[in-house]
Simulated assay, not measured.
Amino acid sequence: MPPYRVAIVGTGGIASAHAEALSAAQGTTGLARVELVAAVDVDLSRAEAFAKTWSMPVAGTTLTDVLAAEPIDLVHICTPPGSHVALAAEALAAGATAVVEKPIAVSLAAVDELLAAETEAPGSVAVISQHRFGSGALRLRGIVEAGAFGRPLIATCHTQWYRDAAYFAVPWRGSFEVEGGGPTMGHGIHQMDLLLATLGEWSEVTAIAARTSRETGTEDVSMALVRFESDVLASVVNSVVSPREVSSLRFDFEHATVELEHLYGYSDNDFTVTGAPGFEDEVAAAWAVGPAGRPSSHGAQVSSVLDALDAGETPPVPLRTARATLELVAAIYRSAFTRRPVLRGEISADDPFTQRMDGNGAPWA
């Protein structure tokens, strides 16, 4: 079939990961599966430079102009979070499928607006959640579904990164209005998304958050205790004040512990599996079966998106799945700022924390 025609909106650092993944996508015949058509950025010189780098014939300052001039099948949105929903809705209205960087929106209300727009459009929205697509995570989900390690009992999910003053000097960073939040929203969301992909739906969260040292309108640290519907208990830490940076997940099952430690992406070698006494051989044999050899990456997810489009199916990760992760983020803020537990589904349409992640305002505002 002919290659999908693609526009990339926003030409900052993450856009190159999208362009590289799209350029590398090949079908079974070895032919390219996509054609990079247009680069869009509010700064025309940046759009033109990006278009030249990736051999894109069109550069523009608005998605509106590009969609009016060119037939586009896929729109990859790599802009700051506050613009995601409007751009994705515009792509949907033009009949394209939108692939949007996480976080999908700065509020639950915004993502619900996009869900409504999606129901009226022929295309759909896929949200970048690249950690779901590495072979190690796929293998782990198979283990959970098969019960090969027994029941999962507890888990830890830590995103401990370091961002200095220069990072927060970028105008759109460090605000609930444009970025949607601090490390809970913009950094730890990828690890939390993988936590939910592995363990299923959460049911209750108790959290705290603080602005400990950074000059920012958001938190720079949050901690949460999460109960899942399966009764698994998890601790979650999100930080941008940690000099030794690490992204880590740990799952303790009845018969094994699975640990994943990396920073911005993992391979199979980043997993450690330990069998409980008496179960070592059984655990090793179970872990040896399943997907292998694919690191987490934008390329892995982009290939899955294209496969779904080829088959006429909804691309992964669909908007409603991404909303479940965003609801956990909103619940962490609500619990931290109101100082009480939050149940899943408790944040109603008229709740302040549906409209903004900081509700009526952060305690330090």
Rank of each mutant, 00 (worst) to 15 (best):
D358T: 13
T64M: 13
A117I: 01
A59W: 07
H84K: 01
G361S: 09
G174K: 02
W202E: 00
S235N: 07
G27A: 03
P80M: 02
V99S: 00
G142T: 02
S23A: 15
V106M: 00
P81G: 08
A330F: 08
E35W: 05
R340N: 10
S83E: 14
S230L: 09
V58T: 14
A169E: 12
A300M: 06
G27P: 07
A210P: 02
H190I: 12
T212A: 15
F168D: 09
E48C: 06
G293M: 04
E254C: 00
T28Q: 15
P352N: 11
D220T: 08
S129R: 10
T79G: 04
R46C: 05
L22Y: 00
S239F: 09
V236H: 11
P152A: 09
E118P: 11
V236A: 10
A21Y: 03
V6M: 01
K102H: 11
G30H: 06
L343G: 12
S55N: 14
L108M: 06
E313Y: 08
E20N: 11
P363H: 09
V42I: 15
E90T: 06
V6W: 00
Q355E: 15
H262G: 06
G10S: 03
E280S: 05
A39M: 14
V226T: 00
P318T: 08
S124R: 02
L22C: 01
T28C: 08
E313D: 06
S222Y: 10
V99C: 09
K102S: 09
V125A: 01
L249V: 07
C157L: 10
I72A: 00
V127P: 03
P3G: 03
S45E: 15
D73G: 02
V100P: 10
T325I: 11
E261N: 09
L306Y: 02
D43M: 13
E145I: 03
V42A: 14
E261G: 10
L319M: 08
F251Q: 06
A224P: 11
A210G: 12
I347L: 08
L87I: 13
A116D: 14
P291Y: 07
G60W: 04
A121K: 08
W364G: 02
A98S: 13
A311H: 02
D351L: 13
E120M: 14
A286N: 01
A94H: 12
E35G: 12
T198Y: 12
A285P: 07
P81I: 02
V106E: 05
M357D: 12
T321E: 15
A166C: 03
Q130V: 06
T218N: 05
A47D: 13
G150T: 03
A88N: 12
G82Q: 03
V6P: 00
A109K: 04
A308D: 05
